[in-house]
Amino acid sequence: AKIASQPSNLQTPKDALRVRLTEVFLRLQEDLELHRDKLPRALDLAGFSTGESRDLIFPCFDEHFSYSSLDQEEFFKFVKEFTILDLKRQAELFEKFDADGSGRIDPDELADLLKSVGVCPLAHVVKGLVLEVGDGEMVTSLGPAEFQKVLKILRERDGFTLQEVHDLTALFERCDYDGNGRLDNREIGRVLHSLGYSPDHKFDEVLAETDFDHSGTLSKKDFMFFMRRIREREIAFIQKFFNVHDTDGRLGLSFEELEEMLMSLGHLPDRVAMQQTLAQLDLADLDRDFNFSEVWCFIELFRKQEGLPVEDMTEAEDAFQKYAGNPIASTDLMARVLRSLGYHVSFHDAQRAAAM
């Protein structure tokens, strides 16, 4: 086996790719060999593979290699051969969804294309991608090169918009309480709670998938991959509830169906809070049906705001700032905050609530 070299700071695109691949190889190798079974994970980490190309990985490997593992140079060769197949697949997909043969696809066709290969095309993500490819303008159609750029962005950012990446990065840094650049199990739980997930949300299995060095912690890069997996699972989960509660024969949920869905998810929805959350998303018309992307954005925001009306949130935030004054409050301070809001709680009540 060839000896893996440590990556250096090189500037050309070709050398930058080699550095990135070297980093991935060094993280996943055992005895300076990368096993065949780790290739999907390696390509994910390197920003090469999403749902639409995963089925190419093992046929590509089997065509070019006869052993079950690769040294570093062989891994580079594999990525080169995989890239050729991947670009061919992209061209075939583009041609398939270019219905009129014009050499261009519109944003709706892009969403259909992504959906056909297992990528959930949330409307706000597709819009963000199209705006970015169009240098800030909402272009009406995409050519093959622009489509390839869309896939490249999707892969590099793990399917998140640029704003979502910024928000998640800021959340990572805010929850990294010891400042060591990694999140432990407890800090990950706080991240998910900040995003509105239930304290009972189980993430051990996803953590095991994304904790590549088996340290029980996540680096910032691993954290983005972890959040991608969390979102993929949550989208599939919410989609099932969406389908169950879409009962009126129209594609989408009415306000009443949305309320029933929230109750099925374990929430006790306040109608005023629901209306205010929809208004924040420019979805104030309650006589229309909401598509899945709109419902997803609503649930994300509704959870982050704990299902509270705006005035209740403002009152709670003001009370917290008055008594705590920093992002982390002790249990006795939390008891004072709650009492200032009119709740009759003891220290032990606050302690139990803080532990949830």
Rank of each mutant, 00 (worst) to 15 (best):
F212W: 02
D167T: 10
F82Q: 04
W296L: 09
H166K: 11
H348A: 14
P144K: 05
A99V: 13
V119E: 15
N243A: 10
E311P: 03
S194A: 12
D15W: 02
K2A: 11
V125H: 11
E74D: 11
L70T: 08
I328W: 01
V24H: 05
E52K: 00
D184R: 02
H124V: 09
T22I: 01
F97K: 09
D55P: 01
K304D: 01
M224K: 07
T83K: 09
S330K: 13
I57Q: 02
E146D: 12
P7G: 06
Y197S: 00
G47F: 05
L207Y: 03
A316T: 14
F241G: 04
L70N: 07
V272T: 15
E33D: 02
E311S: 15
G134F: 00
V272D: 15
E156G: 04
V19C: 03
E311T: 14
R271V: 06
L251M: 02
V126K: 12
P7R: 06
D222E: 15
A111P: 13
E260T: 05
S66W: 01
V133T: 01
K322L: 15
F242V: 02
S5P: 09
L17C: 05
R186D: 13
D285I: 10
C60P: 05
F226Y: 09
F203S: 10
L192S: 05
R27Y: 04
L281D: 14
D282W: 03
L114H: 09
M261N: 00
F241Y: 09
S53T: 13
E81A: 04
F237D: 11
L218D: 09
A1P: 14
E294K: 13
K304T: 14
